[in-house]
């Protein structure tokens, strides 16, 4: 079942988009989004090329928003923004400059890559849109950990968020931190 997570985004969409992602796209399209985001999402599929273009647009939008911003696109998604003097000198404080960057990134992201990346990476990494407790139980089972065995979903979540709880092994701890990534690594 979880081998599905290893299948590319395109293949996953061919098999049918999980209802969670379809609902999310419906909500985005109803907002409505920018023309670019609408064009990409209206077919309920995000191709590799569309994802790359979305990120490129994100970068250009931030760089064009104000002088002195240096943008890097991490391979893992998201965006990295450096504030140079030409940007900082426009503000009275570091906090004000940071807030301005946050605002630029939020605005540019909503017009370009945010929802496209959410769908692209979500479908690629978690095509079945497993919820946290579902993925965690699957992961713990894969690594042979008995942590939380027999608990309901809610009880399991409560357990792992209890500060006094210590995972039974490093593998169990890895499952708790990121069960989707851990499951992917286990099935690679």
């Amino acid at each position: 079942m979880f081998a599905l997570a290893l299948i590319t985004a395109c293949t996953a969409t061919e098999q049918g988009l999980a209802p969670f992602y379809r609902d999310h796209i419906d909500r985005v399209l109803a907002d409505p989004p920018s023309d670019f985001v609408a064009e990409v999402l209206e077919d309920y599929e995000v191709t590799d090329a569309e994802y790359r273009e979305a990120r490129q647009r994100f970068q250009e939008c931030v760089e064009d928003a104000a002088p002195g911003l240096d943008v890097i696109l991490p391979s893992t998604g998201g965006i990295d923004v450096g504030r140079g003097d030409a940007f900082n000198e426009r503000f009275d404080s570091d906090d004000a400059a940071q807030l301005a960057v946050d605002d630029i990134v939020a605005t540019c992201g909503s017009e370009t890559a945010n929802d496209i990346e959410l769908i692209y990476l979500g479908v690629r990494d978690n095509p079945d849109a497993l919820r946290y407790p579902e993925a965690l139980k699957e992961c713990l089972k894969h690594v042979g950990a008995t942590d939380g065995e027999g608990l309901s979903d809610a009880e399991l979540v409560e357990l792992v968020l209890d500060e006094s709880y210590v995972p039974s092994s490093d593998a169990a701890a890895a499952c708790i931190a990121d069960p989707i990534a851990q499951l992917r690594s286990l099935t690679d």
Binding site: G82, R83, N88, G122, A129, R131, A181
Partner: peptide, 22 residues
């Protein structure tokens, strides 16, 4: 000495977890 901010990609809650190395 440049202040930088790395913003992770937005994740739907039902995607539930992600990780990134910078």
């Amino acid at each position: 000495g440049t202040a930088r901010t790395t913003y992770g990609g937005q994740m739907a809650y039902q995607s539930i977890a992600t990780s990134s190395t910078t």
